Every structure is written in structure tokens, then in C-alpha cells.
Amino acid sequence: MKRKLLGVIDATTYHEDLEDLLTHRSLAALPFAGRYRIIDFVLSNMVNSGIRSVAIFPKMQYRSLMDHLGSGKNWDLNRKRDGLFFFPSPIVDNDGNKIGSFEHFAANMDYFYRSTQEYSIIANCYTIFNMDFRPILNWHSQAKCDITEIHHQDGRSMEMYLIKTSLLIKLIETRHETGYTCMKDVVTAIQNDYSICHYDYNGYTVMIDSIENYFSTSMKLLESNIWKQLFIKEQPIFTKVKDEPPTKYSKSSSVKNAMVANGCKIFGTVENSIVSRGVKIGKGAVIKNCIIMQKCQIEENCYLDSVILDKDVKVDAGTQLTGTTRSPYVIRKGTKQGALMNS
């Protein structure tokens, strides 16, 4: 009988350095690469690894995450048996940076009791990578490990853990006696009764934890060698499908080394930038080294360099906005930038 995996995604993490982009959404729902959300990567990796039951544990600002995931149809997780499960945390003041909170899991024990999968993979929601978990499961079994912590090739923890589901249940049930509050407590304990193993993953991996990190990771997607490591034909990254028309490019437009999603109208110049769905860029506007999120409107003769526009931002004609690669200029969702205010 084939060993089966249960997928558990901890979506409670909040990084203060990303505050400007997390006012209206959770970190898991942060847009990335034009048409994706960050959670799409770990969720797609689980589905591509044959996982058919995935539980997502969010804490706050999860409406946009629920809207994005829906029934799980786009990931083939809208099933009569197993499928996609959503368990918001009843605990408001727990530490949101501890992956795999046992208190959060304990509030939803029925999910674990009813699972038929022998093993569980517990993962964070904010890592950009493309990984098949099945080789790790085989390695874990052959090495006779109790818990395997997945590491970067440089030795840093990826905050992902492979464990028998029965042992996970035991850790949750005995949390008050042992003092373990999360998976990290278990693997870093000086003394415990478990065999802790480390698996080194050599593929491209970035954990999004700051504006600078988010911006630089996004810009690197414009390099073909990075893109090919993340978007693999045999292991596709799935996302919510939206039926929109192709992007329209006028005769006045100029687009170089850019990712442009569908539904846009481009009348100006776009260079080294990522443009999401439904964006309008006016005639004479110049967009360089920018991340432009969904449904933004940039009017005529604007100049933007090293800028992140969150969703539904309007930039008035003639406005100039300039940031740097280390400190990109960030405009929050739904706001308006005027030429007099920002020139």
C-alpha cells in the first residue's frame, strides 16, 4: 500500500516588514508573479506530490485568501472525499511566527482524527519554490526518522516538517505536559525522545519576509533561468482562473523584458516590470522596474521607477514616483496618487 501524505499549511504568519502590503490581506494571499498568490506555490507542490487532503490554518485578514482558494477547484481539491479544508484560528493572541501551532491544531482535532493519511507535511505559506515531497517521504522512511525538517542547501530551516500523523496527534494532545507549542519547539529541543532528521533541498527557494525581499524576488523572475526553476511544465503552479480578454497593446506602447498578465491595456512604455491583470497604462507613461498589481490605472505621462502599486491604485497624469531596489516606493491598495502631491 502506498504511503499517503496529509497537507497542512500554516497561514498565520505576519511579517511587520510587509505591513504596507498586508493591510487588507494575509501573507498567504499576497500577489506574486502577475497572476499568482504566494500560497499557490506550496499548495501546488502538495497537489503535484499526490496530496489530496490539504488543511489551511489562517488567523486574520483571510477573506481575500478564501476568495482566492474558493472550493479548491483550480487545484483539483473540490472532492467528495478529502479535498481542501479551511480552519481559521480561534486564538487571536498566539505567536503568528511559530509554524505549526499545536494550540491552533488542537482546536480542529477532528480533522486529524479522521484523516487516513499515514504521514503529514506541515509547511509555511510564504515560500517561493517548486518541490516534489514524495522523494522526501521515501528518504524519511528509509532513514527511520520520527521528524524530518526540510532545509535550504545552505543549512537554514525552510520551516517545513514531515511527520507521522499519529505522532503529530500525540504531540498536539500532550502539548501541556511536554511544553511544546509548535513543531520548531520539538526539533530544537535539547533533549527529546524522537529521531530528528534534516533533509537538504537544493532547488530554488526564497522565503518572503520583507518588502525588499519581495521586490528583489519578483524582479529576479524576469531572468529566464530563475523562471524555469519555478515554473516547470511537469510540476505546474496552479492559481485561480479568471476569464479576461487578452492584453491590448497600442501602437504607442513599448514593452521590454516584462511580464504582463491578461486583461490589460498598454499605451505607454513598460520595462523590467511585472504587470498584473486588468491594468491600464496611459500614453506617454513610463514604467520601469515596477510591480503593478491588479486593476491599477496609470494615466498619461507618468514616470514610475522601482515602485510597487498594490491593487486598485490610481496614479494621476504627470505623476512621478521613484524608489530604489533596496527601498521600493510602495502605494497601498485602493489609494490615489496625484501629480502635485508626489512630483
Rank of each mutant, 00 (worst) to 15 (best):
T13I: 11
W75F: 15
V47Y: 01
F86K: 00
R79F: 09
H24A: 14
I56L: 12
R81S: 09
G70R: 12
K73S: 09
F86Q: 02
T23N: 04
S53G: 10
N78C: 10
L69R: 00
L77W: 05
V54E: 05
D40H: 02
H15P: 10
K80R: 05
T23C: 03
F41G: 03
L43H: 03
T23R: 09
M46P: 11
A55L: 15
S53F: 04
S49T: 05
L65G: 01
A55C: 14
L77I: 14
M46C: 14
L18R: 03
A29K: 00
L27I: 14
M60Q: 08
S71P: 10
M66Q: 15
A29D: 07
P31Y: 00
T12H: 08
L18T: 01
R52D: 07
D67R: 00
R63G: 11
L22W: 02
F32L: 05
H68T: 06
T23S: 02
A33R: 04
E19A: 13
Y14L: 11
F32H: 03
H15A: 15
M46A: 14
N45I: 08
I56T: 01
D17E: 14
G72V: 15
S26L: 04
A28N: 06
H15K: 15
I51K: 06
D67M: 08
W75V: 09
I38T: 11
T23F: 04
I51M: 12
R52E: 05
F41P: 11
T13D: 12
H68A: 05
S49V: 02
L84W: 05
F32N: 01
G72H: 13
M46G: 09
R37S: 07
F85E: 06
R63K: 12
I38Y: 03
F41S: 01
R79K: 14
T12Y: 06
I39R: 02
N45G: 15
G70D: 13
L69N: 00
N45M: 13
Y36K: 08
D40Q: 07
M66A: 11
Y62C: 09
L21C: 02
G83H: 03
M66F: 12
D40N: 11
I56Y: 00
G83Y: 03
L43P: 10
G50M: 14
L65T: 01
V54W: 07
T23D: 00
R37G: 01
N48T: 04
M66G: 13
H68G: 05
L84S: 06
S26R: 02
K80L: 14
L77M: 13
K59M: 03
Y62F: 11
S53H: 07
L77S: 04
L77F: 10
M66T: 09
F57K: 00
Y36V: 07
F41E: 03
G34T: 07
A28K: 01
K73R: 14
V47Q: 04
S64V: 09
P31K: 01
F57R: 01
N45Q: 14
R35A: 03
D67F: 06
E19L: 14
A33T: 07
H15R: 15
N78F: 08
N48V: 02
I51H: 08
